[in-house]
Design a protein around this nucleic acid. Structure first.
Lengths: 156, 156
DNA sequence: CAATATTATTTGCATATTGCAACTAATATT
DNA sequence: AATATTAGTTGCAATATGCAAATAATATTG
């Protein structure tokens, strides 16, 4: 499990770099990595409330609020008041926002193709399946209220 | 490959949250996530030069320089001039720095144990092996000069 | 049903992070 | 010796972040 922690740490870091270079080099629009995550998540959920997205991304609602403001200014995201609860703001991608995200997708996919290209078909399948397992496991571990029971006593 | 991009994106994000909550909740010292990555990398390499670490982490050397200054102030990292080239600064963890990092390790490992706990032994092995493959593949794809040949024409 | 509590979101403010350009010091090249 | 390159630092302006407080809408409760 020890080397697993290391493998994960390194992998996640490298993937982050990939992701960042993508947001940088890709599309002309200036989209930060945080913002690309936001776009990604808005697309994934269907007209999600601000709360929901912020939580999923582990972002302070306050920071999130400001990011959305920026994305709205850039005309990549639009908001509307929920008909069910007028406190709630629902988010959706504008056509342009979707276009930008699609471009990022394309870029990432191309990079990933390249990375996976060095593997055998069998390896590739194994890896993809593993990612599924991993995500599922993280989700399961998370929903049991990671904050509370996950807290480890480790202050000196 | 499409769903792979999605799986990866989500996984990396969630792992990032795990990591962040760790830096937060764990050890009393105030260590940001970026800083924990720096500690991690200094330990992994042996007395690496600033350049090397900054590059591995994909951090601007200028930002990195300041982070190191902070970590030095916190007495978690120490620097010394390279005997071979006096322009070069070599980094190493202080005892305290190592202690903090070890604490973060413990915390992460415990969390990971929990996550992997929901899997069968077989699944676990598959996943760990896949991570190895993935890292290897990313490394290979990276060393061929990802910047140049990886660039995809995608400006509108 | 009025008073109170809760929830969603925004804003002010202080701090931390980042990127770029310019600078210093040391080493390499010519 | 003059010039170029490399490692690292610093100033400055732009962002991003966290916390506390404010606003507005909905829920709860006596």
């Amino acid at each position: 499990m020890d080397s697993t922690r290391e493998q994960l740490q390194i992998f996640v870091r490298r993937f982050g770099l990939l992701n960042a270079s993508c947001c940088d080099e890709c599309c002309g629009e200036q989209v930060s990595m945080a913002q690309s995550h936001i776009l990604f998540e808005i697309r994934r959920a269907d007209s999600p409330a601000m709360q929901a997205v912020a939580e999923e991304l582990g972002m302070e609602i306050t920071t999130f609020s400001r990011q959305i403001k920026t994305l709205e200014t850039k005309k990549l995201v639009s908001r509307r008041v929920s008909p069910d609860d007028r406190r709630v703001t629902l988010l959706s991608l504008s056509d342009e926002g979707l276009r930008v995200l699609t471009q990022i997708d394309r870029y990432m996919t191309k990079r990933l193709d390249h990375i996976f290209g060095g593997m055998s078909v069998f390896e590739r399948e194994t890896v993809v399946r593993s990612l599924g397992l991993l995500n599922e496991a993280v989700r399961r571990a998370g929903e049991a209220g990671s904050r509370q029971e996950g807290v480890v006593a480790c202050r000196k």
